[in-house]
């Protein structure tokens, strides 16, 4: 369960995020949508304790993230390139994270195998460093790394951006499959309303740092979302 209490983040005088209260139950898949500056990435940074909150707190499975480091054990995340290590090959990068998460070599290989179609032969076994991968391939490598060690909480910032159409579809089915297992809490931000409406059980609409809509996904959700974002 992710719990948010009186969480605000201010940069100078402008408020980047203002969430008085939010609870995400275990196993829920939540989509965050909102225009640029809505506060999606700020929220993720606060959740991962990469920026200090101005007021309030976030609890990740009962652990207050700014107080203890133990949330790291059950949390996987990919926000941007700073979650990859440029001078490693994808294999070395995965091994590094598997080592930290206590995943054995065999388990890692077994874990990576189902992702071969998603990788489309462009990630593994190419002898390329991550810094030489294209933006889309780098994102694919990073998103998969966030899944190593079966995290209970998964945070992905714009996982569909920069991906080619086939990869977007494959990633969507991977995430849907994960969500259907109901043993992982997922937070996914995206600018693609159709993707989140398809993958997530619940959709939060942020606007200028505030939560303006909290929807349970139904067949009508996409139309409703489009109405929210359509210019008046």
């Amino acid at each position: 369960m992710i719990e948010v209490e009186h969480l605000t983040k201010q940069y100078g005088r402008s408020t980047a995020l203002d969430l008085p209260e939010l609870t995400i139950p275990d196993g829920q898949c939540v989509g965050l949508v909102g225009n640029n500056g809505a506060g999606k990435t700020t929220f993720f940074n606060l959740l991962l304790d990469l920026v200090p909150a101005t007021t309030g707190l976030v609890r990740n499975l009962g652990v207050q993230v700014a107080r203890s480091e133990s949330w790291k054990h059950h949390t996987g995340a990919y926000l941007d390139e700073s979650f990859t290590i440029g001078y490693l090959t994808p294999e070395e990068y995965y091994t590094f994270i598997a080592d930290l998460r206590g995943v054995t070599k065999e388990d890692l290989d077994a874990f990576l195998h189902p992702f071969e179609p998603f990788f489309n032969g462009e990630i593994l076994g190419k002898g390329k460093y991550l810094r030489d991968l294209s933006k889309g391939n780098l994102k694919k490598a990073g998103v998969v790394a966030a899944l190593i060690g079966s995290p209970k909480v998964l945070v992905l910032d714009e996982p569909f951006a920069n991906l080619d159409p086939s990869s977007q579809l494959r990633l969507k089915s991977i995430l849907k499959e994960l969500a259907s297992r109901k043993d992982i809490t997922m937070l996914i931000s995206s600018h693609d309303l159709a993707h989140v409406a398809e993958v997530c059980d619940r959709i939060l609409v942020l606007e200028k740092g505030k939560l303006v809509k909290d929807l349970k996904t139904t067949p009508e959700t996409l139309a409703e979302l489009e109405k929210v974002f359509a210019p008046a």
């Binding site: 304790d49 990469l50 480091e69 790291k72 979650f83 290590i85 440029g86 998460r101």
Partner: peptide
């Protein structure tokens, strides 16, 4: 520095 956020969110303590 290039991947400090990764290290800060991985399953390892400072």
């Amino acid at each position: 520095s290039a991947y400090y956020p990764l290290l800060m969110t991985q399953d390892c303590t400072i």
